[in-house]
């Protein structure tokens, strides 16, 4: 069966529209549309691609769409899938940004956004709690966490530099550990 590029774009556009609340939501949607309905890939491939998407740089939902599109129809498939997944958020944000700049000076809207600022802080703290419980669990990770926190609070360095230094530290730590264990 010949898969058309428009078909790929359409399916990922539909998935993009339904994507609310973080990258992980995309997995059940891909299972429904790509694995069960279109049969462009198997469930095992979906699991593999999801694991891979988390290990590579980039936005998880975009990575997994690129991989799924590539699997369906090579580079042009990957392009159409990625375009499909980012177009709905792109258009929604453009529309909302236009509307918001028009109404943001009303007193009630201002008060609502004042409250939403507190909501965002709570959302960030809930995310920190999730990340912490998944990642900070050994002496090495504790030390790294507090070292990065102190550095970033005290010095105006770019987060990119911190990420590179943390990667280098992790590699050295893994090498030392391996040598210790023979």
């Amino acid at each position: 069966m010949q898969t058309s590029l428009f078909e790929i774009f359409k399916i990922f556009f539909i998935i993009g529209l339904q994507l609310l609340g973080g990258g992980y939501v995309i997995v059940p949607l891909l299972k429904k549309y790509i694995v069960d309905e279109k049969k462009w890939m198997s469930e095992e491939e979906l699991v593999d691609y999801f694991a891979m998407s988390q290990c590579l740089p980039g936005i998880i939902a975009c990575n997994i769409s690129t991989a799924a599109g590539y699997k369906a129809k090579g580079i042009s498939g990957a392009f159409c899938a990625t375009l499909g997944i980012i177009l709905p958020p792109f258009l929604c944000i453009l529309l909302l940004a236009k509307i918001l700049t028009g109404i943001v000076n009303y007193e009630t809207i201002k008060n609502a956004f004042w409250g939403i600022r507190i909501s965002v802080i709570i959302l960030i703290f809930i995310t920190i709690k999730e990340l912490w419980s998944k990642s900070v669990n050994s002496v090495f990770t504790y030390i790294l966490f507090f070292a990065v926190l102190a550095t970033f609070i005290l010095m105006p360095v770019s987060p990119a530099i911190i990420i590179i230094l943390s990667a280098v530290t992790s590699i050295i730590y893994a090498k030392v550990q391996r040598r210790k264990n023979g």
């Binding site: 891979m52 920190i128 990420i163 992790s170 893994a174």
Partner: peptide, 29 residues
């Protein structure tokens, strides 16, 4: 596929706490 990404997983043992720490400082700020 990336064979369960075991080869690069050890980099992420350090990257995840670093990413979390960056977000924590933003949260407090």
């Amino acid at each position: 596929k990336l064979s369960n990404c075991n080869n690069i997983n050890y980099i992420f043992t350090g990257l995840r706490p670093a990413s979390c720490a960056l977000l924590t400082s933003i949260g407090f700020k």
